[in-house]
Design a protein around this nucleic acid. Sequence first.
DNA 1: ACATAATGTAATTTATATGTTACATAATTC
DNA 2: GAATTATGTAACATATAAATTACATTATGT
Lengths: 75, 75
Amino acid sequence: MKNNLKIARFQVNLTQQQLAEEVGITRQTISLIEKGKYNPTLKLCLSICYAVNKTLDEVFWVEREGSENEDDAAN
Amino acid sequence: MKNNLKIARFQVNLTQQQLAEEVGITRQTISLIEKGKYNPTLKLCLSICYAVNKTLDEVFWVEREGSENEDDAAN
DNA sequence: ACATAATGTAATTTATATGTTACATAATTC
DNA sequence: GAATTATGTAACATATAAATTACATTATGT
């Protein structure tokens, strides 16, 4: 469950604590999401996106893993 | 919790049942998500996106409600 | 070295997403 | 108008997101 939250958070210059307060959740939840340790709800993802001024795709999109052919790395 | 899942599902010509099977969840969950009755997890959103061949933004993005000034509609 | 701030993480609890079973309605199709 | 298919929903059970509390580690600053 990789994501770009940490980078996005740095770009708006917020600590985990500050972001958590803006979003209305705890710092621990932010930490766990950044570490990819779990699986936030859509509503939370959206709240986070608003706080870091990015879209869902920018922060949380990941290509499907199981499938083989992507268009960036290998070829 | 509005979204475009129903439209996206029609575009790939799947029933709720078929989509649910592809994603590995129940038809009821698809139904509830389409009706905006709740708040799926990110992993489920991604699985759905893969199944309907769209991105998170295309299916699940909604502008923040509470705030007024965006940069598309008003001015 | 000692504060302090920022972060990682674990245990326990609570809220809620999701599964299961079941029944209802609307639209097809016979 | 009786099957069948697609969908909406409700009650209850289970899995897990998220809160809470707590403690550890890693900067950063003095």
